[in-house]
């Protein structure tokens, strides 16, 4: 066997490789772009779901902006702001923990059904078919448009309405934008006592539509010692600033539409 061509091929390729290697290593030294190593470190701490809650195009863009001082270090609701502060060498206060909450308790069997929906599984479509399958036009439709856009897997459909896992929710607000009924609200996580209804119809109509609808009876308003509850547009609303989370209103609500999360967990509600 003639070994010469084999050795020749090896040595030619070897020399070419060596030359390119030297050129590339020189280019790497010469043309190096200085990047702040902190950008990578900050990026590591972020959620990585590119949810857009910070207002930037994605996690990479946010990390860069934070290091350059163009974004608030506590702008990412999914990340630990203190960890970002430690990387940057500054003290950062974690923003108030917010969560998305479904302002509706219209489960199957609780909310009156107007018709049986058997079409395309999309809340937007169902909402357009004669006002939706539930008699209440403010109710969660429960076909999961929000579940599809949640990048954190925090939303599931249970018994005809959306359930949000508060431990997973980072309040990015994508579900809020998607909901055709506007039934999801971003609320402070420690606002433990909330009115889970926003039906603005008259009490009679609201009650006919759902057993857990707010009928604007004002009992909660009268019970609250701190003036934290107001009935506007036909439903009650609790001001989380004034509310002391005493839970007295939840005890007197005749429709069970005020829920005290310090007594019941969101799962049971």
């Amino acid at each position: 066997m003639d070994w010469v061509p084999v050795i020749l091929a090896f040595s030619v390729l070897g020399v070419i490789g060596l030359v390119f290697g030297v050129v590339l290593s020189l280019a790497d030294k010469k043309l190096k772009v200085e990047t702040d190593p902190r950008i990578g470190q900050v990026r590591e701490v972020l959620g990585g779901a590119n949810c857009g809650a910070c207002g930037f195009a994605g996690c990479d863009a946010f990390a860069e902006a934070v290091v350059e001082g163009k974004a608030r270090p506590n702008g990412c609701p999914a990340a630990n702001a203190e960890a970002i502060g430690a990387i940057l060498g500054i003290s950062v206060e974690q923003g108030e923990k917010m969560v998305a909450r479904v302002i509706c308790q219209g489960h199957n069997g609780v909310a009156t059904e107007r018709y049986q929906y058997d079409g395309y599984k999309s809340c937007a479509t169902a909402a357009g078919v004669a006002g939706g399958p539930k008699a209440c036009r403010f109710a969660c439709i429960g076909l999961g448009d929000c579940e599809k856009v949640c990048a954190f897997g925090a939303i599931s459909m249970e018994n005809g309405i959306a359930k949000i896992d508060e431990n997973r929710c980072v309040a990015c607000g994508n579900c809020v934008d998607k909901c055709p009924r506007n039934v999801i609200r971003i609320t402070p996580a420690d606002a433990k006592v909330i009115v889970l209804c926003r039906n603005s119809d008259s009490g009679r109509v609201a009650r006919a539509a759902c057993m857990k609808a707010c009928i604007a009876c004002q009992r909660c308003v009268k019970t609250c010692k701190y003036g934290a509850i107001a009935v506007e547009n036909g439903f009650a609303r609790i001001d989380p600033e004034k509310c002391t989370r005493c839970g007295e209103c939840a005890k007197v609500c005749p429709c069970g539409c005020i829920v005290d999360y310090s007594v019941v967990t969101p799962r049971e509600a």
């Binding site: 107007r114 357009g128 006002g131």
Partner: peptide, 8 residues
């Protein structure tokens, strides 16, 4: 009245 559209 509730007709065929989304809103009454």
């Amino acid at each position: 009245r509730q007709l065929l559209g989304a809103a009454p």
